[in-house]
């Protein structure tokens, strides 16, 4: 691994830099489900005994910051992908807390130069402190030459 990336990893990885609360609105999760083409009742029917937000809904929620203060800007960031890891269902009508940290930083080098990938993870918890879901956003920055 490049020395500068190793240094940045040591300085920034796994340190929470943002915390934000979100109210999960049932009408919004139902509308989300319909627009995605969901057909399972537990995502569409608020009266269903297992009513819950669709698993990837949480990826729509953003913290107040994508990167920690002082993080170096290698170039313009582009959205390279999203990942969601579901531990427990997210219940519409509840309030969840998202805690954000950098989960990974790595590079790929191609013909046009080095690209830096930064994975920002938001861990979501319910009001009792139960860990519900992780939402990863993968940003790629093409290094300025």
């Amino acid at each position: 691994m490049d020395a500068d990336i190793e240094e940045i990893r040591e300085k920034y990885l796994n340190l929470n830099f943002d915390e934000k609360q979100f109210t999960i609105d049932p009408e919004t999760t139902i509308q989300y489900a319909k627009l995605c083409g969901e057909t399972a009742d537990r995502f569409l029917d608020a009266d269903h005994e297992e009513f819950q937000a669709p698993p990837a809904f949480i990826a729509c929620l953003s913290g107040s910051r994508m990167l920690p203060k002082g993080f170096p800007r290698f170039g313009i960031g582009m959205d390279a992908g999203k990942g969601v890891e579901c531990l427990q269902p997210v219940r519409p009508g509840s309030t969840v807390t998202g805690k954000t940290h950098l989960h990974d930083i790595y590079t790929k080098t191609g013909r046009s130069g080095r690209m830096i990938f930064v994975v920002t993870r938001i861990e979501f918890y319910d009001s009792a402190g139960n860990h519900l879901v992780n939402s990863d956003s993968r940003m790629v920055m093409r290094e300025r030459n």
Binding site: G37, T39, A40, A56, F57, G83, V84, C86
Partner: peptide
Amino acid sequence: QGYLVAMIHNWAPVAEVQSVDT
């Protein structure tokens, strides 16, 4: 990403999606 998950539920409505990476 939501389409991908919906597709899985169309195939197996009872499936619990544990992770999806896109």
